[in-house]
């Protein structure tokens, strides 16, 4: 059953939005992911993810005040919606359930 669709990168973006809370706009999200996960994020890819998430209804956006450093363009802030929160929880639960189902032997053997 495809109850909630959430890709790996999309999940990371959502988690980052949650971390940034009130300060989650495009560039801030990108910088946060880059500094925390030490991976390079292209602007285009991130925007694509944001567009998709908004389309799915997991996040919503509102325009902030125009700022000097953006030459008068307003920042667009993102917020997680209730549906988004459910999707994140679902994703986490399924992972946990899967983790819980792994027999100890399996991983031990692998690491041995």
């Amino acid at each position: 059953m495809k109850k909630y669709q959430l890709g790996e990168f999309e999940e990371i973006v959502m988690l980052t939005i949650a971390i940034l809370y009130k300060e989650a706009y495009g560039l801030a999200i990108k910088n946060e992911i880059e500094s925390r996960l030490k991976r390079n994020v292209s602007m285009g890819a991130m925007h694509t993810a944001l567009v998709r998430l908004e389309d799915k209804g997991y996040i919503r956006s509102h325009d902030g005040e125009p700022t000097e450093e953006r030459m008068g363009r307003p920042k667009k802030y993102f917020q997680i919606t209730a549906l988004g929160k459910k999707a994140m929880e679902y994703s986490r639960e399924t992972r946990n359930a899967l983790w819980g189902a792994i027999p100890d032997v399996s991983l031990n053997v692998k690491f041995s």
Partner: peptide, 8 residues
């Protein structure tokens, strides 16, 4: 607007 802002 958003993309332009970020890029700038």
């Amino acid at each position: 607007e958003e993309i332009e802002g970020d890029l700038i």
